[in-house]
Design a protein around this nucleic acid. Structure first.
Length: 499
RNA sequence: GCGGGUGUAGCUCAGUGGUAGAGCGUCAGCUUCCCAAGCUGAAUGUCGAGGGUUCAAUCCCCUUCACCCGCUCCA
């Protein structure tokens, strides 16, 4: 992990946010190379999910939505669970998920929450639960921890409203909180904690505008925000992250089939870009870990340096979301199929609320995963000087690589730079991100491009000027072949084609 | 949030209670026609931030910020 963090910084993939100010917890910036990589990851997702599918369309919704969206989705309630710290074992847990115990009864627990040690006794408090980890009733106060970022929309400063409301009044903490809550609620809006809701909220608009027939899907990529309890593992879990989600709407009863389709399809997508296919797996959720809206769920997991972790969740969300939004908004979010027979009435024509299968991937995580998957070291070998060097190379899939080709004049004279610049312009005209590079000796340029994953290096040498050929060097094997300059573009384009 | 660790040049790291070092990299010049080449020269640090102890702190103490490794939830 340290390797990839270090490489990320050295080569301009990922920097810590606001680093000169000491950095900001869990916030990261994608540098020149990282920006390209992440764009490519997301571009490939969009291509496979939207462009190559007749049944899926795209959406790019506002990050700030009507606050009632989150009321309907359950995020406002579900995301403000009371959290409690255990004073004995220091565990932090959700009060509503803690084991219940009769207030007043005396319980035994081990000091520090260890397996063996001093036995302590204490009565269960009025709240009627104990620590799920060590069983101790010695707990901190419940604290509300809202996972959504809240801000205020509009020019009115809610703090001023609060100040006026509270001026000169002496109230207990609970009362003050009520006033603050009420005053802030008037202008309160939230940064979306997932992109999914917009696709439910715009279901009817999209279905009608494009005259879509079930089954169909709506896909969206973009930023989401969550005040995570703990942030960890570099960009793996951060408060600001990027998602790639798709909601696939199907006829009730067809969700199982769709889930099967998407779990296979999505795993295959990752594998088609990855080097080490043994590090991927599908894991089915246990009944007790399913979200309240889901009736089944699979995770695509990757074996990160710290163990197996999630890349994408493929959930069968039932008709929960559309129904909830329909209830809260009063707008029917249903689909009418003229051909089908209504199973209840037996008449032709069936109006129903579609079921949803949702492959929801983390774009930020996927970017990190591809970096981890790509990092490789060749076996050490001596260089021209006899010093043993280990080649570090990012074996990124060519379609994900920030630069597709580097165009290098072997030396900076005799017209080589001019010819190389001409060639690189040709790539730009084709929309292929190539890089002209004339700094340093050729070996060092190869090495730098290996480290950022550039799959092909095209070198203009003396022969190029005479016979119009160029050498093309392949990143992983470092082998070279000589091709015609006129054909260089076509050769690279051909190799970039998705297999 | 708790425990353990880390923070010194662009990067990787060494170091000492008395005005800071290496390797690599960077820049300039010369040389160089294929895998981090050579020679010459040059630049670079509020030693993470704030406070304290001290004649003197990068080093000792306190606070704080950030990251890494464990413990738990999500994409």
């Amino acid at each position: 992990m340290k390797e990839i963090i270090s490489l990320s910084k050295q080569r301009g993939f990922i920097f810590q946010s606001s680093e000169i100010y000491g950095g900001l917890k869990s916030c990261y910036d994608y540098g020149p190379l990282g920006a390209e990589l992440k764009r490519n990851v997301m571009g490939e997702w969009w291509r496979s999910m939207v462009h190559e599918r007749e049944d899926i369309v795209g959406l790019d919704a506002s990050i700030i939505m009507h606050p009632r969206v989150w009321e309907a989705s359950g995020h406002l309630a579900g995301f403000s669970d009371p959290l409690v710290d255990c004073r004995n074992c220091k565990e932090r847990f959700r009060a509503d998920k803690a084991p219940r115990a009769q207030p007043g009864t005396e319980v035994e627990y081990v000091e520090g929450g260890r397996k063996r040690g001093k036995l302590l006794r204490k009565q269960v408090g009025d709240r009627g639960y104990v620590c799920p980890n060590c069983g101790s009733p010695d707990l901190s106060d419940e604290r509300k921890f809202n996972l959504m970022f809240r801000t205020s929309l509009g020019p009115v400063d809610p703090l001023q409203e609060m100040a006026v409301a509270l001026a000169g009044r002496s109230l207990p903490a609970e009362e003050i909180r009520k006033v603050l809550e009420e005053k802030s609620k008037e202008s309160a809006v939230y940064l979306r904690p997932e992109t999914a809701q917009a696709m439910f909220v715009q279901f009817a608009n999209i279905q009608q505008a494009l005259a879509l027939k079930v089954p169909f899907g709506i896909a969206q990529m973009g930023k989401s925000f969550r005040n995570e309890v703990t942030v960890e593992h570099f960009v793996f879990r951060s408060c600001e992250f990027e998602q790639m989600e798709m909601e696939y709407f199907v006829e009730p009863g067809k969700q199982k089939e769709a889930l099967e389709h998407w779990k296979a399809k999505r795993l295959e997508w990752y594998l088609s870009y990855a080097n080490d296919k043994s590090k991927f797996r599908l894991r089915r959720h246990e009944a007790n870990e399913l979200a309240h809206y889901a009736d089944d769920c699979y995770d695509v997991e990757y074996e990160y340096p710290w163990g197996w972790g999630e890349l994408e969740g493929i959930a069968s969300r039932t008709d929960y979301d559309l129904k909830k939004h329909s209830e809260h908004s009063g707008v029917p979010l249903t689909y009418f199929d003229q051909e089908k027979t209504d199973p209840v009435t037996g008449k032709k024509g069936w109006r129903y609320t579609p079921y949803v299968v949702e492959p929801a991937a983390g774009a930020t995580r996927t970017t990190l995963m591809f970096l981890l998957d790509a990092l490789a070291y060749d076996s050490p070998r001596p260089d021209a000087e006899g010093n043993v060097k280990t080649r570090r190379v990012l074996k990124l899939h060519p379609r994900l690589a920030p630069y597709k080709a580097a165009v290098l004049p072997l030396v900076k004279r005799d017209g080589m730079p001019e010819l190389a610049r001409e060639l690189v312009q040709g790539f730009f005209r084709e929309g292929i991100n190539a890089k002209y590079d004339e700094q340093h000796a050729i070996g060092r340029r190869y090495s730098r491009h290996d480290e950022v994953g550039t799959p092909y290096c095209l070198t203009i040498d003396g022969d190029s000027l005479k016979d119009g050929t160029v050498t093309i060097r392949e990143r992983d094997s470092t082998s070279q072949e000589r091709i015609k300059i006129d054909e260089a573009l076509a050769v690279v384009r051909k190799r970039l084609e998705k297999v």
